[in-house]
Design a protein around this nucleic acid. Sequence first.
RNA 1: GCCUCCUUAGCUCAGUCGGUUAGAGCGACGGACUGUUAAUCCGCAGGUCCCAGGUUCAAGUCCUGGAGGGGGCGCCA
Length: 477
Amino acid sequence: MAKRTRVKDIFTGRIGQEYRVMGWVRTFRNNQFIALNDGSCLANLQVVVDFENTDPDLLKRITTGASLSILGNLIASQGKGQSVELSATEITVLGDCDAEIYPLQPKKHSLEFLREIAHLRFRTNTFSAVFRVRHALAYAIHKFFNDRNFVYLHSPIITGSDAEGAGEMFQVTTLDLNKVPKNDDGSINFKKDFFAKATNLTVSGQLEAELGALALSDVYTFGPTFRAENSNTSRHLAEFWMIEPEVAFNDLNDNMDLAEDMLKYLISYALDNCAEDLVFLEQRLTEEEKVKPQQERSEMALTEKLRFCLDQPFERLTYTEAIEILKNSTPNKKGKFQYPIEKWGADLQSEHERYLVEKHFKKPVILTNYPKEIKAFYMRMDDDGKTVRAMDVLFPGIGEIIGGSQREERYDVLLSRMKEMHIPAEEMSWFLDTRRFGTVPHAGFGLGFERLVQFVTGMTNIRDVIPFPRFPGNAEF
RNA sequence: GCCUCCUUAGCUCAGUCGGUUAGAGCGACGGACUGUUAAUCCGCAGGUCCCAGGUUCAAGUCCUGGAGGGGGCGCCA
């Protein structure tokens, strides 16, 4: 039995040579042409069946979704849709597929329907393309950092700290919830729990990454992150993947340079390595937008938008400058904003971010130096005492793709900020130790991996760029 | 968590003012055809009108409650 050749490689195979392919039937036309897909690439291999000399019982079993092993000779195609095709000499059904009850039909399905059958949606063009691109981006992230001598640091998934300040956490426990051990005062006795203390799933690897950076200089994390927020939007998940670089000796400008270089590298990598899939996703998106009113359609096609991001520097401006632009903007003056911009200090709503990115600058924007009141305790205080060295990278369609900052490296300032914001400093002595012993300026950020995949693939719902999405009320599969 | 729209055949949807036997396209199935490209042509089957109450002579259609889904907002990556 000849070894399996991937469909992707068949297309550059030798005419006249015998190959064995294995995959799933997409369509079987005319009792004669099998469109076979094995996920190695978007394109199907056309397998030609000599139906007049094939057992009719076997032909009946070649249905949409059935898995086949096929031996055949590669020949130049007589048809127009493909350059080569496989002339089958032996067909074995590996797994039958009853077309009457198989949910995937040889027709267009809605993304909402496919979300309900997420275990089978990999078998569609759209989702196989999305997950190939997702893989390429994951690989490119490691390559980008490795090429720059970063160390991949594995931050813990179970954390004993509940003070990361990035949102609601999922509790981790082995206690019997029907018989929770109590202290004399009625509180839960976590001494009896697995870790002898209360533990949660991580909401961020940043604090641990900082510890690594203050020895290894350049580190990054890339792992799952969990937020128990009741968020119901097209850009939030309860379980998502985050990339968090942290670099010693970097200031806010270095941080912005790193973020912009990284995003451009990743987009460029996808364009170079996923051309076929991106063209397909672009067509899909264009088709989908045809039913939308003109105003809501994107001005650029997908790959055009991706190239546009590479061609020019991201717009960098301070929060204060952004407020001025927004205050004087037409929608603000005409009362079109749901939340009008009146004074400095207001938190920016997504309508404001979208105006800046999609209407005013028409390119990715990096906003910096936000008021300290609306940002986290660990961000470095500016000299004016009013703003901190934060940065948000805003992308069209998905909003905030990166949030980061230069970190507060001064022990006294950090400690007083923690007190102001009611962060229990005594529980975080390990974090403060880095500032007590050989502290250095440093900076880092968090990149939402699924938001990146959304941007590159043009998928509008984040639940369609992760295999099995977790969100409030749903942990299927 | 808030606002809003939706739920009718396997899928995508239509269903008029509340009216008698609930439709279409695609898919599936049967047949014809046999170099097709989500093939084509002919035929056939397929319904808990999301669930529970209520109003009415009569409810897919109106009202109340619930469930599920989409979109927007908040939280954020």
